[in-house]
Design a protein around this nucleic acid. Structure first.
Lengths: 313, 313
DNA sequence: GCCTACTATCAGAATTCCCGATTGTTGATG
DNA sequence: CATCAACAATCGGGAATTCTGATAGTAGGC
């Protein structure tokens, strides 16, 4: 903020202060509007809640417009805020176009690419992807973030990651995808259930203790399909909050669960777990990115590298 | 700048740093491109040359594009720079639209208005203008900057002032104007030339010592008109770098000069100077503003206030 | 060959920005 | 009705960035 003081031939002093709006404040504005409250917006922007609060306050003061109604439930856009947030989006879009144009001109990509991972790095050929990207764009920094497919897709929509692997299908029209491969999903349990699993029908399976898949995980659909015709649905014995914890529970004999065949195989070989032979499912692995960024050189390079890393494999 | 460090299941560390482009850097970029060198750009932006230099450098590093060629004459846009500066303009225009939208919504104008003055405050009804603006928009801060008409018009074009008074005609197609009044310009000299001035023809006048008007001042045209048919052009005895210094020279008897009749009158009454009766000129006073900002509430309020302050008078 | 106009760089100063802790508010819950 | 949880605003101290003034380096004009 700059404060100046002028004295002309007049009888009064004239003060002026310029507190120019900045892009980081606009980024905060749209994030708060999307997140609905300061706390979540702060998390998304990797900063603190007071910082976010200050950004919004500064913008409101400078524009002389109340942008949000403060409620105990969070921040709700005012009518004026809704209008101005459209303009804020225009500004940020224009800024993005500048970045895109710059990366087209520079030829070599710089900055950072944020990639979402929905499962273990080996399956996603991450090492190959890394090599691909670095060989093409040595300046490029790679940021990885782990999560489950549905959340990662939402992060793409919000623009907080550039692209992401995900399992299953995609319901977001803003997100475009390429198909990479399919994973074979099988039913597995610790070795102690070997006999039961060998001869089991779906109805038998339902009587065994099941490990509940990650919420919103595409595995759910398979479970539903499996027990479609079974009257007595399976009992859930444990919750798994992530894929890896699910696998730990599986190996330690807590219950039966769905697992990717390639992940299961080493443990089968070691005799730790056993597979049900009745049925398996095909789960597509895709890579998604924001449709409107299709021409963005960063996205093009990313998608191409992902594709190549899977063609190699 | 944020620096993060991630460690996944991979064998390598991944570092990321985000240094987000900001509007102040784009404002600098555009100003440097227009000014042609860092020094002048720094003056326009009321900051120092090293600061400007750092902005440009940071942008170039982040975008990974060389924007300017550094020459001993200044900064010359590269081909890439020319492309990107268009995008930068888009961003700044979008940001301006946000501001305009906000001031339409807030009803009450806030922030600052920068007004250019080409002559003394009394003649421009500045006191009335101030009262007009403050009564309509108490929050509004007023900044004044003095200069000569041509430079002020250029400042309007560049957007460094919102509007300005100016004498004479305007050759900039980007600038729209309203006509306010006309000043009567007369030839005057110190009292010691009283006898000569009373009976002088233009040819006689040319023989007297003249005070050179401010460069690019519309007064020049009047001098040219006056001595159009005179073979022997007048001798310039002194340079006046501003209107007020010209008047000082005039009163102290250094030479003959053009002066606004309303300014001259008090001194005539005091017997300090005398006027030539041969011819006088009509010099229009206008108020200019950027054509594309015609709908901007700030501009509308400003132009309306200027108009009203002159209707009152 | 000197002078001028220009940009880049540096270390220190000034400013801004951010963080953690705290308070106050509201709505939900037992 | 009291308690608790979720949220935003505020404050002081600390961290980070930005700005400044001085200086060095470079090329063109006289």
């Amino acid at each position: 903020m700059v404060v100046c003081s002028y004295y002309l031939e007049l009888r009064y002093n004239i003060h002026l202060w310029i507190a120019d709006m900045e892009l980081y404040q606009l980024r905060t504005l749209v994030t708060v509007a999307d997140a609905g409250n300061l706390t979540h917006a702060a998390e998304r922007l990797y900063t603190s809640q007071p910082a976010i609060s200050a950004h919004v306050k500064a913008l409101e003061q400078e524009l002389n417009v109340k942008l949000f109604d403060r409620t105990p439930k969070g921040m709700r856009l005012t009518a004026h805020g809704k209008i101005l947030i459209e303009k804020a989006h225009s500004v940020l879009n224009a800024a993005n176009e500048l970045r895109i144009e710059a990366s087209m001109l520079s030829g070599e990509l710089a900055g950072a690419v944020k990639i979402g991972l929905n499962t273990n790095a080996e399956f996603l050929q991450l090492s190959k992807l890394h090599d691909q990207l670095i060989s093409k764009s040595p300046q490029l920094k790679i940021q990885l973030s782990e999560g489950i497919s549905v959340e990662l897709l939402d992060e793409i929509r919000r623009g907080s990651i550039d692209g992401s692997f995900y399992f299953g299908s995609n319901s977001l029209k803003e997100v475009e995808s390429i198909y990479l491969t399919s994973a074979n999903i099988v039913v597995a349990g610790a070795s102690k259930w070997k006999d039961q699993l060998n001869t089991a029908t779906p109805a038998d399976l339902a009587k065994l203790p099941w490990i509940y898949p990650v919420p919103f995980c595409p595995y759910h659909d398979f479970v539903n399909t499996l027990f479609e015709d079974v009257a007595e649905k399976p009992k859930w014995t444990a919750d798994a909050s992530s894929e890896s914890s699910m696998n730990v529970l599986l190996r330690s004999g807590v219950g039966i669960a769905l697992i990717r065949e390639d992940e299961a195989q080493p443990w089968v070989d070691e005799g730790l777990i056993t597979l049900w032979q009745g049925q398996s499912f095909s789960l597509p692995l895709n890579f998604g990115y924001l449709k409107k960024r299709k021409q963005d050189p960063l996205i093009r390079a990313l998608v191409q590298s992902v594709q190549e890393s899977f063609e190699e494999a």
